[in-house]
Design a protein around this nucleic acid. Structure first.
Lengths: 165, 165
DNA sequence: CAAGATTGAGACCTCAATCTTT
DNA sequence: AAAGATTGAGGTCTCAATCTTG
């Protein structure tokens, strides 16, 4: 509803600068998608984990007590809490993590890494790092890569969503 | 199977360079994920389409006859042909595309953009371009953005998957 | 009642099997 | 038989509703 257009010329011909920009974006995204597919295949072959699974075990591996509350994991994964619950279900089924209840606050459930999970974290991280070096860092050069990371991460700092200008 | 390690020191302590690299990669990916969420919300709000839906209508809009075979769409989307079939089902249900059979080869099904679909393509592309400029091109600068695109797209040209060196 | 987590229903993708046309 | 597309089964996520604890 609401079409405050000057005429229906708007529907006929998009700006040529928009066309070019969207083309660039599609190129950019396509390349990143291919890279992620490579990384994913490497993780699967080397450690038998999916990408979200790796994110979880890697975070737990570097966390105090090798454990973290479900809510934290959801935030890191950018998943809903429901989705996180089911992911942890699968990882627990596979024997990589275990559930505990927080001592002083019985509402929170902590996911804790098992020894098997730690092994997976180490193997997977090694494979992922190798793949990143081979396919990204090497072609870009060390500083080229650093520049890339800094440029992109400077764009979307950490907070908001759509349109707060 | 197969653990050709020197000792189990391998399982105890991953290389610190790997840790740093994976941290950078996570930062990079997190930022891109946020950007995509912004873009997705903009598309949904402005034109009522999902990201794959936009990719389809935009490709058709710029295609000869405003139509393309299912297989081509699958390749662009990086979807299976089955997934593409179901996506087109939904877009057809929404009245944005129609199915035809290719004249000279009756095996291929062409998805054709309807007038309603063309309108969506124009509105959505305008919104997407605006969002890209506001959130990416502006903070990076025109040439910074161009550099970014060139750097990343140079990495994964167009073909292979895992490990053909 | 608010916060944290889980459950059930539904949406969207993939893989394997099938159908049609060449 | 091979190429193109569709169907059915299965996996993974989200949203809404629920349960438990603070």
């Amino acid at each position: 509803m609401a079409e405050p257009v000057t005429s229906d010329a708007t529907e006929a011909c998009p700006d040529s600068r928009d066309i070019a920009l969207l083309g660039q974006w599609q190129t950019f995204n396509g390349a990143l998608q291919r890279l992620n597919e490579i990384l994913l295949a490497e993780l699967e072959a080397t450690a038998g984990v999916t990408l979200p699974g790796f994110v979880v075990v890697w975070h737990l591996f570097n966390a105090p007590e090798r454990s973290a509350p479900m809510g934290d994991l959801a935030q890191i994964l950018r998943f809903s809490t429901a989705g996180t619950t089911k992911l942890i279900d699968r990882l627990a089924e596979a024997g990589l993590v275990e559930r505990r209840t927080h001592a002083s606050d019985r509402r929170v459930t902590l996911a804790t890494l098992t020894p098997a999970g730690a092994g997976v974290a180490v193997r997977a991280s090694s494979a992922a790092a190798a793949a990143l070096r081979r396919h990204i860092v090497a072609p870009l050069g060390d500083e080229g890569f650093a520049t890339l990371v800094r440029a992109v991460s400077g764009i979307a700092p950490a907070g908001d969503a759509t349109g707060n200008c």
